[in-house]
Design a protein around this nucleic acid. Sequence first.
DNA 1: TAAAATAAAACGAGCGTTCATTTTAAAAAA
DNA 2: TTTTTTAAAATGAACGCTCGTTTTATTTTA
Lengths: 195, 195
Amino acid sequence: MSSIKENIAKKKIFEFCIKEFARAGYANVSIRNISKGAGISIGAIYYYFSSKEQIGQFLYDKTTEIILNKIRLGVQKAPNDKEALRSIIYNLFDMSEKEPHLMEFILYVKHKEFLPDAPPICSSKPFEFIKNFIKKKIDSGVFRDMDIVIASALIMGPVIRIIQLRMDNILKNDIRLYTESLLNGIVKSIFKERA
Amino acid sequence: MSSIKENIAKKKIFEFCIKEFARAGYANVSIRNISKGAGISIGAIYYYFSSKEQIGQFLYDKTTEIILNKIRLGVQKAPNDKEALRSIIYNLFDMSEKEPHLMEFILYVKHKEFLPDAPPICSSKPFEFIKNFIKKKIDSGVFRDMDIVIASALIMGPVIRIIQLRMDNILKNDIRLYTESLLNGIVKSIFKERA
DNA sequence: TAAAATAAAACGAGCGTTCATTTTAAAAAA
DNA sequence: TTTTTTAAAATGAACGCTCGTTTTATTTTA
């Protein structure tokens, strides 16, 4: 049972921590920082979470879930393979623009710091989903026959790289505009060539 | 003037810190850890470095220099454009296999933590060098005419991704073996198509 | 009134850094 | 050569502070 108050408090903590963990790193954000920044007392924080690590766990679970849902929905609605790929790229770029902190948290925060036994982020649910998608396309002959790892790297590598350049403020403009040209490059490298 | 002793001490500190910063993160490695791990007393550490931050600075300078030198040499010796690209990929993979800690330090450690005013890692010397290389190839018509950012992402994205998968131990085998197939995919996405 | 929620104070451990001191080794003086 | 002097190198205890967490006390809610 989680009360309304509990949900409000957790949401405040979520929003502050996502931002701060991404900016300063987990180890450099103290419980006192969180208390002040989220406007929740230390006592309340420990009332809702049993430890600082658990806050990290909570953030990790929430963020991977949000991303997975968005990606999955886009793929499901796509009318064909190229559109499915486009939706993956676009949705990741879209999230990077709309919720940069969330994306930074996933891509930059060393989550081994608070989740010692968790798999690396590239084995988290959203990335696993994308990997399965790629595997299916290779098996069904849509993508060239290649090592799944190579295909995965050729597709996700450039996407993640663009997102990182945006997070680092190297790219000043909306990266959703890059969707088309990046897709074109990726398509060339992995789709079967037209006979 | 840096004495032999100083160089030995700094080397010990370098080797321990590269490993530990990559594994645990800068904030989670204390001076006491460094002292114990490197076999240099706390006092001696502060004799050679004015602060913990300066150790980070030292590591950052050394690692970017090592990587830049290796990449530059490979490109200089390459007989043609494709070989130059191959050398960049191979050398990065080679370093990842031979000195994984060094690569982890560059790719994973949040260096803003100890170098608040440094540019993001993708603007560090080795990456700038590669970016210039790509720009030249676009300008001279070797690569397709595209946004430098896109080209950069299409080339370096997959390479970095493979390295990260290796660092995370998702890839169990020597990634140098992927050089050829990755190069093929990348070539397809950025080289001008044959008429 | 009992349970849930909040707040603040207190705890021990560990942090980066300093510093008075000792050791080491080479240069100067005898 | 032997002794004295000097400065670099190295030491680790101690300082002030912040950490994550717990306890204790009070207020709000049901």
